[in-house]
Structure formats: structure tokens, C-alpha cells
């Protein structure tokens, strides 16, 4: 039942993202990508948070299941960060004239991708399971500390072409027309549910891989 609802919710988002007028008239038709770009970025932050929380639980309980949960969340987080980067650079091509401009927002997401890329390099470099889990848990905590800084602070401190007030204004008040909200918030909810679904599957797959390796 939940799956059907998710299917209908995302279909609703896709259809209305096309039918309603473009969310940012000044940026033109391409701004419709907003409904997918921002939720992708949101899911990546959420996934990195979930990864850090499971890393902390692993350090407390020393149960390898939490390591699997933590690394699976990071994998999905990296995927969605990549999707946000790709959708963002498509938008940049139309609005700013080039796919990549080394705008502060692009630099910060690039650093974030490198940080989480290094997380997997670290995991693949350590063979012993307990050591790998402990190191990754500590790394996931350190890596997440950079997330709010790179995602929310850097692009607002440095002068950037990227809009900083498309969802909330400087007083953290939602600033969107009702029509845009009618598509944007369902999209956020849909992406979040999709994340938890994919995450649970990834955890199951990783658990099986570990079982096969162990036995």
C-alpha cells in the first residue's frame, strides 16, 4: 500500500512539475528542475546524517549491522549528491552559460563528493571488519561535521550565483508561492520515502554480501 502511494505521489510531482508554471519565472522553464534538484540535495544530507548516527551507534554497540547501515546510507547519500550535482550543472548550463563555473556552491558540493569518495576508499583499504567499521564510523562523524558547513554556510558566505533563498528566506520563513509548495513539499516527502526504501534494500543486500564473505 505504501509503495503504491509513493508511486502515485512521485507521479503527481512529475506531472504537476510540468503543468504548473515554472517555479522561478526569472530563470525560465529550466527552473522546473528545482522540484528534483533540491530534494536530491536534501536526501544526500539526510543520508549522510543517517550514516553518522549509525556510525555513532556502531561505536557504542560494536554491532557490525550498524556499520552496514552506516555505509549503505553513505552510498545512497553519495548517489543523491551526484544527482544533485548533475541536475545543478544542467541548470547552470542554461542559466549561467556553462555546466561548471567553479561557483562556491559547485566547489562545496565537489569537496563533499571528494570527502565521501574518500570514505569508500578508506573502507576498501582496510580488510579487517572491526577495524574497517570503527574507522568508517569515526570518519562518517568527521565527514558529517563538514556537511552543514559545505551545504549551508559556504555558499551563503561567499558571493555565489546560486540562489540561497529559494526555499526559505534569511529569517528561515518559507518563501514560495502556494502552487510551487504544492509540488515541492510532496516531492521532498516522496524523495525521503524513496531514500528509506532504497536504504533498507541496500542494507539487506550488504548483509547478504557480508554473510557470503563470512561463510
Amino acid at each position: 500500500m505504501g509503495k503504491i502511494l509513493l508511486f502515485l505521489l512521485m507521479s503527481y510531482v512529475i506531472i504537476w512539475a510540468y503543468i504548473f508554471p515554472a517555479p522561478q519565472q526569472s530563470l525560465g522553464e529550466v527552473s522546473r528542475i528545482f522540484y528534483f534538484h533540491v530534494p536530491s540535495a536534501w536526501v544526500s544530507v539526510l543520508a549522510f546524517l543517517v550514516s553518522m548516527l549509525n556510525g555513532i551507534i556502531y561505536l557504542k554497540k560494536r554491532d557490525l549491522n550498524y556499520d552496514i547501515k552506516s555505509s549503505s546510507a553513505s552510498q545512497i547519500g553519495l548517489l543523491f549528491a551526484f544527482l544533485a550535482t548533475v541536475s545543478g550543472s544542467m541548470w547552470a548550463k542554461v542559466s549561467w552559460g556553462a555546466y561548471w563555473n567553479w561557483d562556491p556552491r559547485q566547489v562545496s558540493i565537489f569537496i563533499l563528493l571528494l570527502i565521501y569518495g574518500a570514505y569508500f576508499a578508506l573502507r576498501s583499504a582496510v580488510l579487517e571488519n572491526d577495524k574497517k567499521a570503527a574507522l568508517s564510523a569515526v570518519y562518517s562523524i568527521l565527514a558529517f561535521i563538514t556537511v552543514p558547513f559545505l551545504v549551508f554556510i559556504v555558499p551563503r558566505v561567499f558571493e555565489s550565483l546560486h540562489p540561497a533563498t529559494s526555499v526559505v528566506d534569511q529569517n528561515l520563513k518559507i518563501q514560495m508561492s502556494p502552487k510551487v509548495s504544492l509540488v515541492f513539499f510532496p516531492s521532498l516527502v516522496g524523495f525521503t520515502i524513496l531514500f528509506f526504501w532504497i536504504w533498507s534494500l541496500q542494507v539487506k543486500i550488504s548483509q547478504r554480501v557480508e554473510l557470503k564473505k563470512g561463510g
Partner: peptide, 30 residues
């Protein structure tokens, strides 16, 4: 046209995740 293409991509992604989900559930029962 673009709308139909994106809807089809979404349907394909959804069905694939569903298929994976049911396959993993079946595996657990065995």
C-alpha cells in the same frame, strides 16, 4: 513528450526497486 519520457523513466525505476524488494523478501523466506 518529455513528460511521458520522464514518467516512463520513473515507472522503470519504481518497478526495478519493487522487483528487487520482492526478490530480497523471497530470499529471506528460503
Amino acid at each position: 513528450m518529455a513528460l511521458i519520457a520522464i514518467l516512463l523513466i520513473w515507472i522503470a525505476i519504481f518497478l526495478y526497486i519493487w522487483y528487487l524488494d520482492s526478490k530480497l523478501k523471497k530470499g529471506n523466506k528460503k
